[in-house]
C-alpha cells in the first residue's frame, strides 16, 4: 500500500480538497476572516493531537494542553533570546521556529511518557491533569519565563497572521495524514488492541509500552507546533497557554466530530465554531455552560459523535467516512 493508493479513498480526497479550499481564504484579504480561521485551525490541530492519544489508545489525556503551552513557550523563549542577542527584530521568519516548539513538546512527552503511561484509567487522567498544573505553576512563578505577565514578543517580531495561517494549515493537513496513516500501520493496530483491552494485548505479545509512548510523542509534536504558531500569531505567550478553556474546547470538538476517527477532529472543529458563534450571540456569557451540557449529551446519547452517528445510521456512509 502506498500513500498514493490510500489517498484515493473518499475521506482523504475530501479533506485534501477542503484544505486546498481553505488555502484560498487569505486571498480575500479579510483580517477578521483570517483570524477566525486561524483560531479554528489551531483548535483543529490540537484536536487531532488529542484524538491520537484519547481516540486511538483510550488513554484520557486530560492535561493535553500542556504540550500546546510548552510549544508556545518554546517559540516565545527562542524569539526573546535570539531577539535580545541581536538586539532587535528577528532577521528570519519567526515561524521557522514552529517545528522546534513541536520538538520540545515531544521531548517533554518522551521524558514523562514511560512513568506516566504506566498509570491507567482515571489515575492517568488525573496524573496528566496534575502534570499540566505543575508545569503551569512553574511558568507562572519562574521569572525567566516572564511569570504571570508572560512574554511579550512585540520588540522582536511583527504581527503576521497570514504566515501563521499557512503554517497551521500545513500542520493540520500533516496531522490528518499522520492520523490516517497511523491507523493503517502496525502502530495503529497495536493501539487498537490497547484500546480494546490492554491486558489482552500484552498477553498477545503486543509491545503496548512502545506503542503508547510513540503515539504520545507524536501527538505532543502536533500540539506543540500548534502552540508555537499560536504564540507567534498573538506575539505573546503567558501561563494562560496552559489554561482550561482551550482544554475544554478541544474535548468538545473531539467529541462532536467523533472520538477515534480521522475525520472527526476536522468536522468537530467546524461544528464547535458553528455552535460557539450561535451561542455567543444569544448567550454571551453562558456558552461554556452549554458546552458542558453538550459534552454530557454526547457522552450519554451520541458517544460516536457526528461521524460515529452517521456511520451507524446511514449504512451507505460506513465505507466512506473514516
Amino acid at each position: 500500500m502506498t500513500l498514493l493508493a490510500l489517498c484515493a479513498r473518499p475521506t482523504p480526497i475530501a479533506l485534501l480538497l477542503a484544505f486546498a479550499v481553505m488555502a484560498l481564504i487569505p486571498l480575500a484579504r479579510n483580517p477578521e476572516l483570517n483570524g477566525y480561521f486561524l483560531t479554528l485551525l489551531d483548535l483543529m490541530l490540537l484536536t487531532y493531537s488529542l484524538n491520537m492519544v484519547v481516540g486511538f489508545s483510550g488513554y484520557l489525556s486530560f492535561g493535553h494542553i500542556v504540550f500546546w503551552g510548552l510549544g508556545g513557550y518554546t517559540a516565545g523563549m527562542l524569539v526573546t533570546t535570539i531577539g535580545r542577542a541581536i538586539a532587535g527584530e528577528l532577521t528570519f521568519s519567526p515561524y521557522l521556529l514552529v517545528p522546534l516548539g513541536g520538538l520540545v513538546a515531544s521531548a517533554f512527552a518522551a521524558v514523562i511518557a514511560y512513568p506516566i503511561l504506566r498509570i491507567r484509567g482515571a489515575y492517568f487522567a488525573i496524573a496528566t491533569f496534575s502534570v499540566n498544573l505543575a508545569v503551569q505553576t512553574i511558568f507562572f512563578n519562574v521569572p525567566v519565563f516572564g511569570g504571570a505577565e508572560g512574554l511579550p514578543l512585540k520588540r522582536f517580531m511583527s504581527y503576521q497572521i497570514v504566515p501563521a495561517f499557512y503554517w497551521l494549515l500545513a500542520f493540520g493537513l500533516l496531522a490528518f495524514l499522520s492520523s490516517y496513516l497511523i491507523l493503517r500501520i502496525k502502530l495503529g493496530y497495536g493501539l487498537l488492541a490497547i484500546l480494546n483491552d490492554e491486558d489482552v494485548a500484552q498477553t498477545m505479545g503486543v509491545n503496548t509500552t512502545l506503542y503508547k509512548i510513540l503515539i504520545y510523542i507524536i501527538a505532543a509534536f502536533f500540539a506543540g507546533a500548534g502552540g508555537a504558531v499560536w504564540a507567534l500569531a498573538q506575539v505573546f505567550v503567558d501561563p494562560e497557554n496552559f489554561g482550561i478553556t482551550r482544554s475544554i474546547e478541544m474535548f468538545v470538538a473531539m467529541l462532536l466530530g467523533g472520538v477515534g476517527t480521522t475525520l472527526g477532529p476536522f468536522i468537530g472543529a467546524f461544528i464547535y465554531f458553528a455552535i460557539k458563534d450561535l451561542l455567543i450571540i444569544r448567550f454571551p456569557h453562558l456558552h461554556l455552560v452549554f458546552f458542558g451540557g453538550i459534552i454530557m449529551i454526547i457522552v450519554l446519547f451520541v458517544p460516536g459523535g457526528l461521524v460515529g452517528a452517521l456511520r451507524q445510521h446511514v449504512p451507505g456512509l460506513r465505507r466512506i467516512l473514516e
Partner: peptide, 15 residues
C-alpha cells in the same frame, strides 16, 4: 469504561 464516566463528569464540571 473510565473514558465515559470521566468525560461525563468533566462535562458536568464545565457546566
Amino acid at each position: 469504561p473510565a473514558l465515559t464516566t470521566l468525560l461525563l463528569t468533566f462535562g458536568l464540571s464545565i457546566l
